[in-house]
Design a protein around this nucleic acid. Structure first.
Lengths: 189, 189, 189, 189
DNA sequence: TCATAATCGAGACGGTACGTCCCGTCTTCCT
DNA sequence: AGGAAGACGGGACGTACCGTCTCGATTATGA
């Protein structure tokens, strides 16, 4: 086994420890020492890779949600949106996602980084999907799509943070339906 | 001066200290000891009234934003919405509002309380306004208004937390316009 | 009980913890955390009074050996010297004394302070005693007394540090006798 | 170059690194990692030969002071003593010597070993010299010479450790003179 | 001349103690 | 009598080294 593989496995081990810990208590109770103990590594190993607890949690989230946001271009726009938002809601409602929200709120500069590295690509995927739908003639081409995406993503985060409740399937379907209504081709007839 | 007045002044003094401190650094750097020193009170005085730093920040936000959310029933629905969301964005973008967002993310149970005490009343005001607009025949009556409000409030919070940027006037106007579009009476023609 | 008394008692408690710990293991194994645990105080309480472990040990030594070096002017010079050196040897051979020697070796600047605050006064007492003996006509007045004191104190420390052995009574008596020999009045006959 | 030569050179390199490091800061700040870096060797190479930092310092002192304590039997006893004590004082006052004193204070068992390997042979050389002086009729034969050597060696160490000052030439001459006074042949006339 | 083995630098690792910071409680002493 | 001032026990922080260990690059040797 090479050095890189070992390092990678150890990091996975640490991510697992974070997930395990966050399943038992909240982010603000999370300590590096507990993570190290659960992962069976020394504190210094953790500090070697991550400057702060917040960065570790952020990477844990990344590792935990890797590639769950892939679109399926064969499906309809609506199905893709529903699937995307459902997965987002699930990811954010998971203990690691909750912790991520705390980190984002606490560290504005990390929020910026995370936004660029993680959220923006998702939006761009979605833009590509919208572009395809436009080309297929399913939706209007003259529409403030960025704003539209905010009205989809915003309420999901809003519900989880402020209502402390995960949006259920019905909510998401209703939301997508409501937001897509004015943009459909037939809506302009 | 009565005892109550003294108490009230001391509390105002503490709120001011919190605001002042949050103007200089972020919530996660805020300490009770610094607040006490700035307010010229003992730590125990603060702990007498608030169990945790988070509750103090929450009350500070309440005091800081008291009565800025009153509706003006004489204005149009759109103007009211724009004014409401603008004020919300300003309040949340202010250091105390930023701190509030952090507290909400950190303490889910407080988020629940705050939602019931503060956000729900605002929504109910807004519902009343919608009801008035329906009666005036300005907007449709068959519409998922709760969901609609989420698509208004959600993006505001979303922009501030994740984009780390306060929505400007143009954004808010565009948002309100977009969301109100399908609900206007003439939209169904 | 006043604040000062309480502080004093707590400090005694900490000194006792240091003595207890040093009776079980060597100075280099001594940790602040263990001292705090034994004394039933928080680490911060110890750091409030002493900057470093070395200063704490130094003060512990001071407290432990307070007023054991008083001279008895009624006794003869030889008896006083023997008593003084015996007590010194006992103090240095005690675990706390051993620790002191380590601190002195490690921290040269502390050695200087300690020398001025503790050892110099002892020498001055001894000088007074010598002066009295001169006046009584027991010893010569023309003699390098400072050097003489070095040949008394030096070997005691030397034996303990390098031979790792406490000078016994016979050794001390022989040393005093040897050193006093040329300074006695009858020696000049 | 044979393997042994390389090993030897590497060890010299490490000794030099220790001396260099101790010239810049005190023993308690010395780290194996810094030594390894200065010597351009891996940490494991050091640990292969020395169990602890203290043993390395001890060997460095040995290497650094090798054969500076040879007596010159042609010279007088007094000159030999002065030369010996001057060299001792210089060796102990050198950074490496200071470090040795710290090691001796810290590790009592090492002090014992070092005493047997290094100090005792010096004393035995000195005893031989004394024996020669007795045979030459320069000094008395009935005298506690062991004790006498303590009154010579002791003050040197004492001055350096506790007064934090190297005994100068005048001091050493005065000391030797004082101690030799009663043992000279003419002293008994 | 080249593969093959041994050696050693480099430094990651699990640990431990450090000294700091701030928590929330509790006591003292001044106004 | 009530509150500021701040000492206190506690506990997590992030750092510095310890002594062990693994990995590769660099030799040194035997085929």
């Amino acid at each position: 086994m090479t050095q890189d593989e070992k390092t990678s496995r150890r990091q996975d081990c640490i991510f697992q420890a974070v997930i395990e810990a966050l399943s038992e208590y909240e982010y603000y109770q999370l300590t590096i020492e507990d993570i190290a103990a659960r992962a069976g590594v020394g504190k210094s190993t953790i500090y070697r890779w991550w400057k702060h607890k917040s960065e570790l949690v952020l990477d844990t989230f990344r590792a935990h949600t890797a590639s769950i946001f892939d679109l399926d271009l064969a499906k309809t726009l609506e199905d893709n949106l529903i699937q995307q938002l459902t997965r987002l809601a699930q990811a954010l409602n998971h203990p690691v996602g909750r912790a991520l929200l705390v980190v984002m709120a606490n560290h504005r500069e990390l929020a910026g980084n995370f936004f660029h590295d993680f959220l923006l690509p998702r939006r761009e995927q979605m833009h590509a999907l919208l572009q395809q739908s436009i080309e297929r003639g399913e939706i209007r081409s003259d529409y403030p799509f960025d704003l539209m995406l905010d009205t989809l993503y915003g309420p999901i985060h809003y519900k989880i943070i402020f209502f402390n409740r995960m949006p259920d399937d019905a909510y998401i379907r209703a939301l997508v339906s409501l937001v897509l209504q004015p943009v459909r081709m037939q809506a302009s007839h």
